[in-house]
Write a protein that binds this DNA or RNA. Structure first.
Lengths: 335, 335
DNA sequence: TTAAAGTGCGCACACGTTTGCGCATCTCTT
DNA sequence: AAGAGATGCGCAAACGTGTGCGCACTTTAA
């Protein structure tokens, strides 16, 4: 079919010559412009099909200004939450006909050179989860009109973000534990300045206070399984043990649970454990973890919507969306 | 700094006007062409710096033919191996100054429309893990000279791939178990036609045969934690229990281990368990899983090298690389 | 003194697509 | 029958960068 001597891909110009029309006619026909007659359109579509025409999205960017590319900044691989978020983003991007450019993944901060590559590829926007953007990097994006959306975290005083209602979620978990008759609470937080973790903890502690209780123990660790495991181990070693543990993320709660299991503590009889995120792992029978499920699909959709709106109109003000999570009571809190 | 009335980004033309030279001179100066005098070059570099010039990589693609974009097809989120692979790929891409375009993620096959978007963005190549490419999609890529590399899986009869030496790894695990005095073996495989799983199983069974033993049980399940858990549950229910279980992936082995734990089976005393992949989770004290670690960083690097070579020279023949994995003996096999 | 080689840079086109403008032709309307 | 609107399409410029070719000037060689 394809001639070996002419390996060149079909272009709009190729098709226009074949069809005996102008390149602009081909473009309009392919894009469904109503001003092109149905007959011409059909003829061009058929030619495109025959010759395996694939539009050059990069060339389109050049003249239209939109690239159809969104940057994605991902958190560490050790937390399955980000893997789920990635897959959700891929699904949503496919639905919207846009592509995802992985800009950064991992724990560390985003380097300035990485931020610059955002510009090189003319991304229409960028979704940031977890990682911190240096002020210089943020400045670069702002100066070049690249809209930024933080998912699952908020920046200091500016920018768009969509999060779960962390405060309410923390409070709801506290209510559940109080209603279950728990009295001695441990909080497993994170040493990072993550807004998400802080809000969850605040909500939890505030609700405890409403019930007239204060946590008896507090741990700060790395926001990972290992951090949770270390906290769980520390709980075991404490002279007086709590009867309920709130970990600010499921991955940490899983670490806590495993430490308790190795220490011979029975959950939920001797100790209840709750987490936050609603990752798939939490549903495993071995963990059976009570948690707040983040409405990930909706959060991702909202993020894309905000990006799409802002890539069309740069004057839109900063916007923040908070979505209520769903309490999933499981075995780790009894019943 | 940036004038509100002139939101346009600096381009080569902008700089050329500022410097009083031709656009081509600017291009050559920025790209380090030796034919441009040092004085002119310094002046242009300074101007570029001042005006925050960011080259338009998409425009460059148009005239140079190379996009600096690689497609990435990722497996399901439920297996942490793919998350690790993603992060490794991101790291390697950063080092090489190329970008990753997420084409597809998840369990299902790659749709043809997805494959076409590979072409739209003129990717220089594509790394495929796990998902299957329809023959039509493969044809599209071949016709358009988009090199494809399979990582951790091999296609039927053609294409480039880089894998771990699955057969040798399976054999090594069998040796270890035999040396540990195990006699009754169960194999937890996957119902998918994944070449990787089949090779691992073949290697394991072949080595058992050399020792004069055949597995007493065999399970096929979904290649996931749940699949492993189901197999583990089935093992519990069997009248006569094996004293060693080989799961073809760590994620399945984790499922097996948890099922055994819930069933009160003590590992490694009553039963040894081994996995394959070397994911981070396998090292958790609660699993402490003996496994074969895939040399992920090297595998990813080789994949990029093969892609880079093929995007420069389309005539290169198919090539396959097999890298030896490393046995990591842990508590799940005793000692 | 002249030819040859080297240096520094500009011109112009190419890459593939989009889009504003405008020119025909055809169909109504009055 | 003539102006008004609709319909169908072409022309040409633009997006930003890369590059082959060639011109002018300088240095070196004979």
């Amino acid at each position: 079919m394809e001639n070996e001597a002419s390996p060149r891909r079909a272009t709009v110009v190729t098709l226009s010559e074949l069809a005996g029309v102008a390149p602009s006619t081909v473009t309009r026909a392919l894009r469904g412009d109503t001003r092109i007659s149905e007959a011409t359109r059909a003829r061009i579509l058929k030619l495109a099909e025959q010759h395996g025409y694939a539009p050059n999205a990069l060339a389109r960017t050049l003249s239209s200004g939109r690239s159809g590319l969104y940057g994605l900044v991902l958190g560490p691989a050790s937390n399955p939450f980000y893997a789920e978020l990635l897959h959700e983003a891929v699904r949503e991007a496919k639905e919207r006909g846009v592509r995802l450019l992985i800009i950064h993944a991992g724990d560390g901060p985003i380097e300035d050179t990485t931020a610059e590559s955002l510009l090189h590829y003319q991304v229409d926007g960028c979704i940031i989860t977890s990682a911190v953007l240096s002020s210089r990097a943020a400045e670069i994006c702002a100066a070049n009109r690249v809209p930024l959306i933080m998912v699952n975290r908020v920046a200091r005083h500016h920018g768009c973000f969509v999060t779960c209602d962390n405060h309410a979620g923390g409070a709801e978990l506290a209510q559940l534990l109080l209603a279950g008759g728990r009295t001695k609470f441990a909080v497993v937080g994170t040493s990072s300045t993550s807004s998400t973790a802080v809000e969850r903890e605040d909500g939890f502690v505030a609700e405890l206070a409403r019930g007239g209780v204060a946590p008896m123990m507090h741990f700060d660790g790395h926001s990972s399984y290992e951090g949770g495991f270390a906290a769980g181990t520390a709980i075991l070693e404490n002279a007086v043990r709590p009867d309920a543990v709130f970990a600010v993320s499921d991955i940490m709660a899983m670490g806590v649970l495993d430490a308790l299991r190795l220490g011979g503590v029975s959950v939920p009889d001797q100790m209840a454990v709750v987490g936050f995120d609603g990752v798939a792992e939490a549903a495993r029978p071995i963990y059976d973890l009570t948690t707040i499920e983040q409405p990930l699909p909706l959060m991702v959709r909202r993020a894309f919507e905000m990006l799409a709106a802002r890539s069309g109109n740069h004057r839109l003000p900063d916007e923040s969306i908070s979505l209520r999570g769903r309490l999933i009571p499981r075995g780790s809190t009894g019943r």
